[in-house]
């Protein structure tokens, strides 16, 4: 990166220390004699949302924001967020990415289709697109050298090899900003990150990541199951067990005080209603299972 100035985008998930990491980078740039501006958005990140922090340093910085295609480096503390930030990265510039995945609950919502909404850990495909990918499992490294909470410092160690800040400024900024008592763990994580050798490390990590469960193995069921009801046996409102048990809210007690299927399209065939009905009212017919 140029000694005259640069733009660093730090992204990740709430709780991973993105804001603290960017405060450390800002402090390091300041101690290295630069003007620096940093702006982050972490509105609801405490609830597992996205955090992104724009940081620009130079002789005099006007706007704190980085535009698409203009980040001189992107530091991603999470895989999916690294992919999301890709349009910000200047083509040819390096991407530093943690291979630890934080899967949002929303990626596991296609109950009938079973489609996994989280992008596969395809490190080699990413390296073909970006060129300079510096990937590592920062969480595993941080845990190994002291504390899993220091994963952000591992990535700062990788960043340190790319920016023109003297070593002592990094160390001073780490000491000044790391939460009390955590400096040794963060310094060790920083050193471990800086010691990683690229691109060899990325290829080693890609090979290690390959066997991890990845994407959709294509076993989607597609169609909903169907329910057969022997209504006269149903005790209706006096019982209601199946209505409370159904994870998809498919069932209701109707005006005749008998169970009715109100959302047939959502039935995944889990059989909880069949299992729990004390009066054997419900039978599940599941084409997926019967076909096997």
């Amino acid at each position: 990166m140029s000694a005259a100035g640069g733009s660093i985008l730090l992204v990740g998930v709430g709780g991973q220390g993105v804001v603290l990491a960017s405060a450390i980078v800002a402090d390091t740039a300041l101690r290295s004699g630069y003007d620096v501006k940093q702006s982050e958005v972490h509105g609801m990140s405490q609830r597992g949302g996205i955090v992104s922090s724009h940081l620009r340093y130079g002789r005099a910085v006007a706007s704190p924001l980085i535009e698409a295609g203009q980040a001189d480096v992107v530091v991603a503390t999470e895989w999916n967020e690294g992919l999301r930030a890709l349009p910000y990265l200047r083509p040819g510039a390096p991407l530093i990415v943690n291979l630890h995945r934080v899967v949002p609950p929303g990626a596991c919502r296609d109950r009938l289709g079973g489609r996994f909404g989280y992008p596969p850990l395809a490190v080699d495909a990413l390296a073909r697109e970006v060129g300079d990918v510096r990937a590592c499992d920062a969480l595993a490294i941080a845990r190994r050298v002291g504390s899993p909470k220091a994963l952000n410092s591992v990535l700062l160690g990788v960043l340190a090899t790319l920016v023109p800040f003297p070593d002592h400024t990094w160390r001073e900024a780490l000491a000044a900003n790391a939460p009390r008592g955590s400096f040794p763990a963060n310094a060790a994580a920083f050193d471990a990150g800086r010691a990683l050798r690229y691109p060899d490390e990325t290829w080693a990590q890609a090979a290690a990541a390959a066997p991890a469960p990845n994407g959709n193995e294509g076993r989607a069921r597609g169609a909903p199951a169907t329910l057969a009801l022997t209504e006269p046996w149903c005790k209706g409102r006096a019982c209601g067990i199946c209505v409370r048990a159904c994870p998809e809210l498919c069932l209701a007690i109707d005006g005749r005080d008998r169970v009715a299927v109100v959302r047939p399209e959502a039935c995944t065939g889990c059989r909880l209603c069949e299992l729990l009905c004390p009066d054997f009212v419900i039978t599940v017919h599941d084409t997926v299972v019967e076909a096997r």
Partner: peptide
């Protein structure tokens, strides 16, 4: 002129959630 940029790859949405 708009600068060249990487295309946005498919990603998982990440709305905030309860802890």
């Amino acid at each position: 002129a708009p600068r060249p940029r990487h295309a946005a790859p498919p990603t998982a949405g990440r709305p905030p959630v309860l802890c």
